[in-house]
């Protein structure tokens, strides 16, 4: 009863958000677009990093690679097919590099993920320089209203995926890997395989997000598409919200996108400083994020009441 109510409520919110595409101003649609983009990215990050504890500081690598595949395909295939192919190519790429990469554990994985993103960025830069392309314009992209809907779809799919995984057998395996990979294998969790699937899933959606983002920005530049700030923002959003469940990023993203909207254009440094301070504060004082902090304090007050 409670569950079906919640489902109806969620569906209603999604329908309302979707119908805004025909009503809201360009400016509002732009904010919505950014909001959905980061929701999709942060949820995808949770699938790998929140669930398995393999913290990725280089998630922009999927975003940027997706965007790159997409601009290479631009004009050759229909737009939305191009988006799908970008996701698929990056997902398969993740499967291919995932095995050696995921053997590197703990803090080394964190640094590796960052290094990998920078490596790919530099390779793309070199490749673009070879082809005499410092930037690639994307002409004739669909209107913002369509991109808005597409991004909404990705955000919903990513959120649903995270929500489902969190409550599934697959998620139970991933979370046991996070707590103690060795002990997880002892009780039969096929750690390598589960990590690899999580890695690929975690890259698939950001790649499509990257493809759609390029249509909005109208131009592909390796430095922008692989900007480490994107990775950093994703991590901060997830950690601020609480990174073990689908509800966490929703909180974190909403907060940071508003902040970004207010500060990014005129005061990017202040925005980054606030981001950094928030990350430091949450790691030190509320490692479970807003969500974890709430549930901890709620259960404490319940206990006190009892």
């Amino acid at each position: 009863m409670n569950n079906s109510l919640r489902l109806i409520g969620t569906a209603a919110v999604i329908v309302i958000l979707a119908s805004l595409s025909g009503l809201a101003s360009e400016y509002m649609l732009g904010i919505g677009f950014t909001l959905f983009m980061y929701i999709a990215l942060a949820q995808s990050w949770i699938i790998l990093s929140g669930m398995t504890g393999y913290i990725s500081l280089g998630h922009v690598v999927f975003f940027g690679s997706g965007a790159y595949v997409f601009v290479l395909l631009w004009g050759l295939v229909p737009v939305w097919l191009g988006v799908a192919i970008s996701g698929l190519v990056v997902g398969i790429g993740a499967l291919m590099i995932g095995y050696p990469v995921l053997r590197v554990r703990g803090p080394y994985f964190v640094i590796l993920s960052f290094g990998l993103a920078e490596l790919v960025k530099n390779l793309v830069l070199i490749n673009e320089a070879r082809m005499y392309m410092s930037l690639r314009p994307v002409f004739g992209a669909p209107p913002l209203a369509q991109l808005y809907i597409a991004m909404l779809v990705l955000a919903v799919v990513a959120t649903a995926l995270t929500y489902w995984i969190r409550r599934s057998r697959f998620g139970a395996g991933l979370r046991s890997i996070r707590e103690d990979e060795w002990a997880a294998e002892t009780i039969g969790v096929p750690a390598s395989r589960l990590k690899l699937i999580a890695f690929a899933l975690s890259g698939l959606i950001p790649a499509m997000v990257g493809a759609i983002f390029i249509m909005r920005s109208g131009i592909f530049q390796p430095g922008d598409a692989f900007n480490p700030i994107v990775s950093f923002t994703i991590v901060t959003m997830a950690i601020i919200g609480g990174s073990d469940d689908a509800a966490g990023p929703l909180l974190g993203v909403a907060f940071l996108v508003i902040l970004q909207e207010l500060l990014w254009a005129n005061w990017p440094e202040i925005y980054m400083i606030i981001l950094g301070v928030l990350l430091i504060g949450f790691v030190l004082f509320a490692p479970g994020g807003i969500l974890g902090w709430c549930s901890k304090n709620l259960s404490r007050s319940k206990k006190n009441a009892a």
């Binding site: 409550r167 599934s168 057998r169 139970a172 395996g173 979370r175 046991s176 996070r178 707590e179 103690d180 060795w182 002990a183 997880a184 002892t186 009780i187 039969g188 969790v189 096929p190």
Partner: peptide
């Protein structure tokens, strides 16, 4: 393990359920 290796961040029930989901049971239903 002699030096215990619980999944500290999971609930006691989740710890044990993880065993049933994998192991030789390979139980598919949560």
């Amino acid at each position: 393990y002699q030096i215990v290796r619980p999944f500290r961040g999971l609930s006691v029930l989740e710890n044990v359920a993880a065993g049933a989901l994998y192991g030789s049971h390979q139980e598919k239903s949560m």
